[in-house]
Write a protein that binds this DNA or RNA. Sequence first.
DNA 1: AAATAACTGAGTCCAATGGAAACAGTTTTG
DNA 2: CAAAACTGTTTCCATTGGACTCAGTTATTT
Lengths: 224, 224
Amino acid sequence: MDFLWQERVEGRRGPKPALTLDAIADVAIVVADAEGLAAVSMQRVAADLGYTKMALYRYLPGKSELVAVMLERGLGVPPELPPGDWRAALTLWAESLISAFVAHPWALEASAGSRPVGPRELGWMEAALSRLPDGLTGAERMDAVAVVAGHVRSIVVQPGESGMLAALTEHAARFPAISAALADIAVRGGHDQAFRFGLERILDGLERLVTQRKQASVKDSRSG
Amino acid sequence: MDFLWQERVEGRRGPKPALTLDAIADVAIVVADAEGLAAVSMQRVAADLGYTKMALYRYLPGKSELVAVMLERGLGVPPELPPGDWRAALTLWAESLISAFVAHPWALEASAGSRPVGPRELGWMEAALSRLPDGLTGAERMDAVAVVAGHVRSIVVQPGESGMLAALTEHAARFPAISAALADIAVRGGHDQAFRFGLERILDGLERLVTQRKQASVKDSRSG
DNA sequence: AAATAACTGAGTCCAATGGAAACAGTTTTG
DNA sequence: CAAAACTGTTTCCATTGGACTCAGTTATTT
């Protein structure tokens, strides 16, 4: 987890390092973008760099750390969110996040499970948190961001439709509700529709909570 | 994808198979539950069964198919949803799904990405779809279920808090919003709180949409 | 009943993986 | 200058998923 936060100390003994952590990660990202995360092996990355596999271990403890660095660089820095409407800000945030995931599909797999967190990832979290409306507890704020981020993830994963369609052609009768719904889906615009729909439901739900609380607190101050 | 839907044909020549697909998957599930999906190898599963690795390939084309079968069995059958309130039904559905994921944490990893879909997985989808309120298009119904399922997934993933806390102890100043929110989290009840919060926001958002449309259609029929 | 064809599980072999350990060469520090 | 620290390379290993072969078993066919 150190290497995610701390850059290399200068002025050490021995030969100058020929590589940098970032250069390694960038090559790995190129591989992952083109051929998937599975194609990223120490050997492959080292070969693409023109070095031997074990040279990388001078920069990284192991492969999982390489993936962590890839993720940090792949995510990029969070976008500048315009001031004003919190819904617009969160929408832009979610759109940017989904763009990052679409550009680097492996990032989804890489960001699953418990793992060390880097500064950029925290930057994304910070950006969203700071633009949430008032009237939520700290825990609720974390949860709210988690819901939006979870929605983005689930959109990118998209396990279903293609595999579902294949399975349904033979067993449509057993799953009438799916069949009926899918008949409608063929004529719409892919991911984006689903993304918008879910995001707006979530923001609506959030908005309802905060306005509800705002009204309650007004009533409170009036009566007390 | 065949083996997910079709059981073995009886009355074949040759020796009786010593194993069954389900028995193999069950052993693999035990391994995955105890030591994670990474510990599931053909060798390991075969050894636990008392057979050689290559024997398994008589039942499965490859490892990815084993994981697919594991997922089908691990998910189990969807719960019976009580009639009536659609919010209660969807809540129970989401709770059951999260229980399955908590019981089999590897199922999350296994269900990521595009993959063949089995009957039980479709059964879950069908169950949720059939209990959604009226007033949604087919595409929207799919999206609505996807949002809820995505929320469940994101709750189970829970990338953050532990790793985040570790990182924040040293860099709290750089991320004030996270620090403030996390200070609140220490005193609450883990996953469940986040799950409830997000689910209720989503259901609120859905409810708003359908009631909105119901009102619009009433007004419509009055004026036209 | 006998022959055949299909099937079984075991055994051997392979390329690729992540990683450990020891290596010779290079540069800074004492 | 010598020693210490660091570099990238080389050699080695266990484990992985999987292709292929082989002897043995059994249901179907003749």
